[in-house]
Structure formats: C-alpha cells, structure tokens
Nucleic acid binder design. Structure first.
Lengths: 263, 263
DNA sequence: AGTTCTTATTTTGGATACATTAATGCGAAT
DNA sequence: ATTCGCATTAATGTATCCAAAATAAGAACT
C-alpha cells in the first residue's frame, strides 16, 4: 500500500486566529451525535436492559431516521464503553457487574484525587476559586433546612457535578477529565445519574467539599488528594451497600433505598 | 418520542455458556476496523502531520474502498482521541502539545502504579508469574551482550509491552487497561511506538522490571506501586528531555537522539 | 487596491440499495 | 427424541446517491 502524504489546509493550520467565528460555540450538532446523546441517556437510565441487542433497523424505525447516523451513534457509544460490539453481530448493551462498578469507582477515586492535588499544587485563579465557593454556598443553602427537600435534590446534584467538573477542568491535565467522564458512563457509578437520599450522608459529603476547597486554597496538595480520594471512595461504599441491600430484598422495589452508616 | 423496550435475545443473555465457540477469538475483523487500525498506526508513526485534514474521498481513493468504512474508522479514531472532529468540517489529525504528552504520562504513571499495586495486593497465579518471569528472562538475554543490538530492539519492545500489559490485565480492574491504552494513543507517549536507544537507560528500566516482579511476588503493594510509578515517570522524563533536544537542534534530524542521564 | 457580496465547487451528512455474513427453522438421519 | 445439515431469513457491512453545509473563487462595489 502506497504512502501518500495528505496536503494540509495551510490557511487553517497556520492562522487559526483569523477564524474566530468558526471556533465559537455554534454547535450545529449533527443528528448522529444527537442520537448518541439520546441513546446514552436512555441506556444510563436503565431503559435498555443489559445484554439487549441494539438492532439498527429497529432503532432507525423507532427514531425515524436512516441507519447511517444510527451506526455512527452506536459506534460512539461502544467506544465510550456503554455498548459491546462484535463484528457482523452488532451492538449490545454492556452489562456491568458489581465488581466493575467498584472498579470504576476505584479508578475515579485515584484520578479525581490526582486532579484535586494538582489544583492545590498549581493553585487556582480567583474566579475559579469563586466558582467553587459559590458551589459551597449553594450547597450550604440547600442543606440549611435541616432535612433534604426532594425538590432540592436536582439542584444539589447539579452543584455537585459543577464542583467536581471544575476541579477536573482546572487540574491542567485533560486526560483526567476524559477518563473520569468515561467512569461516569458506567451505570450507577455516577453522581450525575444517582445521588443518595440520606441527609446525613449528603451533609458529610458536602462538608468534604468544604475541606477540599480549604486544602486547595492553602495549597496543601497531599491533603487535597487524600480528601478527594476518600470522598469518592466513600461514595462507592455507600452505593455498593445500597446495591447489596437491593439485591438482598428485591421485592421491596419501591423502598426508599436508605443507606446505612458504613463503619 | 415513544419509548420502546427492545426485546433481548433470551438465549444469549441467560446461557452464554452454551456458546463457547462463538466467544473464541474468531476475529473476522470488518474492513472498517482494519482501516481504523491501519490509519492509527500511520498517525502514531507521524506520517500525517498534526492538523492535517483527513478528507474522506481522498482516503477512500487512496485505500480503494468506499467512504462508508472510512467514515466509521475516522469516527473511531476521533473517539480514541487521535483525531479532532468538527461537525460539517470533518476530521483532522490532533496536535498534541508537549504538555499534553507529559499529562498522558502523568496519568499513565498513576494508573499503571495502581494496577501494579493491585497485582501485589491480590496476588498473581503461578502461570501469570511464570509469564512475567519469562519476560524478565528474555530481557536479560537481550541485554546480556553488554550493548544494544538494533535487531534486538523490536523483541525488547514486544517483551516490554507484554510485561506491562500482563500486569494491567491481571490487576482485576478493566478500566486501568482501557485508560492506559488510551494514553498510548498519544503520539510519542507510548512504549509501543518508541523506545530509547540508550543501553544504560534500558538496562536500568529492565532492572526496574525485576524489582517490580519481586515486589509483586512478596505481596508488597506499596513498593510495587511506588516502583511502577517511578518506572513510568522516569520514562516520561527521558522522552521529554529528548523532545527538548530535538526542538533545540532541529537541523540534525538524523542524529541518534541519545538521551542523557537526568538527575 | 481592498472589501464585500454572490456564485460555484468541494466536502461532509444522511438515505437508500446491494452484498455478505450470521442466525433461524425445517427436515432427515441416527 | 436428538442432532446434524441444508436452506431460508434476517441482520450487519459496504457502496452509491442525494442534500446541505462550508469553503473557495470571482465579480461588483467602495
């Protein structure tokens, strides 16, 4: 097979500065990426049972588009680890064992801890610190009632995501954010999809946030790393405990899923 | 948009044990995946300059196939982080800064260290230990000449890959292997694509392998983790030093790229 | 001469049609 | 009754075609 060097578009390569408008957040998202996001949500929500085959024609009829963007979306999801692909057999929803969920948390704990330590080591700018402080303040406000209002759960979750995402983004290491995001693709192993309903545990978790930001502000990277690691590890323990309880008593499906203190 | 639950193939879901032959390594790879692997190698080899647009028609004519599998392969590579995708603009070879290469090593060091510590903590089976010992023996043999034969470089690299891959696979955490493999997709940041040509450094690196296996055998997870972390961190330092030297003297393009001792 | 608007070409995104491979069902033989 | 084998069916993989968007080129204007 011959070796041919593709010629590059000189203008775009050399002077990207003259195309500022093109770089803006136009986001003329293609339908394939929309489908991918759509299916991603539904898979993470547990709508498709693990092992379910994702038939392309079926999906195309269901969504009213042709197979081409479907295929692209499925390939994308397979690369993200949500689907399993076998040549000439198609895609199927990946089944995650409890052990894999634990493994995802284990890696996530290390990566987020590293990101947190890097933030402390390198220092954050004042606007970023202000953003994190705003997260703390919002959490304080939501928890000030002394109990957890179900209506406050969604905003608390959003705040939690922003706190963690900000630290990841400002760590200066783009791979940390990428990989942690992949960990969140494991169903149930994500703060984004699920959050505890126990006021005590959430309060403690939010107190961790306070300490984490303090460690970052005082540039104590060791402490910041240790705090974040424990913060995530404990979340995994709570979740795994809940999964155990659910498995032990699958009949009470609508039970409040109250986690108990692990110690 | 209606919600339709896809029916799953009961047989495959419930009794995977009765399909042992299907699970075997048939690998009837589709052309799209072949193309993806092919392009991946060429990109990592630096054949396509960073920023180069990957025109689909151009590639399809070059490779003698239609655009469809090309598109699938490009999407795959973009998901792996080798290409950048912009809607309606296509794919371009991603440019990695030195800082990103360093970041990839930083994450890789932590992840491989964790994998190594887990192997020590959980213990490895005798056949796996034997495989690692075989790697050590092969390295010993290749380095016994007292200098590095260029012909031995490829087998040494293969041995090195197997040593690291074995530890990752046997760590019991599948995400570690996945993420480390993604780190290897960063050009130059991979043992697989590039290996040092300095006998002293390779000897020291191989000595690390000896100590790492010793730590695993003695179930000293702390030591195993620390050793592997330093093992990878030092590799990054050597590479970054080389990149600095290349950048400092870009004229001598065919220079031997000899790294110096860093201390 | 430089700038801007319009037009033409190129390239990507999506739809459809065809080829190939795996799964299924039926039937016969053991 | 079970199993093996063949034919059928269905699903995936690939090629081609059309539409839309972006880029490039050119003409008109300041």
């Amino acid at each position: 097979m011959r070796i041919i060097r593709l010629e590059s578009n000189i203008l775009r390569d050399m002077e990207p500065i003259i195309y500022p408008l093109c770089v803006m957040e136009l986001r003329s998202t293609t339908t394939a990426s929309e489908i991918a996001g759509h299916l991603r949500e539904r898979i993470l929500a547990g709508e498709f049972a693990p092992g379910t085959r994702m038939h392309q024609v079926q999906l195309s009829e269901m969504l009213g588009i042709s197979r081409t963007p479907i295929r692209e979306a499925l390939a994308h999801l397979a690369n993200q680890g949500l689907l399993i692909y076998e040549p000439n057999r198609g895609y199927a929803v990946r089944a995650f064992s409890v052990e894999e969920i634990r493994a995802a948390f284990e890696v996530r704990a290390r990566l987020e801890a590293l990101a947190c330590g890097l933030c402390a080591r390198n220092g954050l700018t004042k606007p970023v610190l202000a953003r994190l402080k705003a997260c703390l303040a919002e959490g304080d406000a939501l928890l000030s009632k002394g109990f957890l209002d179900p209506d406050d759960l969604a905003p608390y979750r959003a705040m939690n995501v922003e706190f963690h995402e900000t630290i990841l983004q400002k760590s200066g290491n783009p791979f940390l954010g990428d990989f942690v995001r992949q960990c969140h693709n494991v169903p149930l192993a994500s703060d984004r999809v699920f959050v505890w309903k126990d006021y005590g545990i959430i309060t403690r978790s939010h107190d961790d946030h306070h300490r984490i930001l303090h460690a970052i502000e005082t540039r104590d990277s060791e402490r910041a790393e240790a705090l974040m690691r424990e913060h995530v590890v404990y979340a995994s323990l709570v979740l795994l405990r809940m999964l155990d309880e659910v498995k032990a008593a699958p009949k009470a499906d609508d039970s409040p899923l109250r986690p108990r203190r692990i110690a």
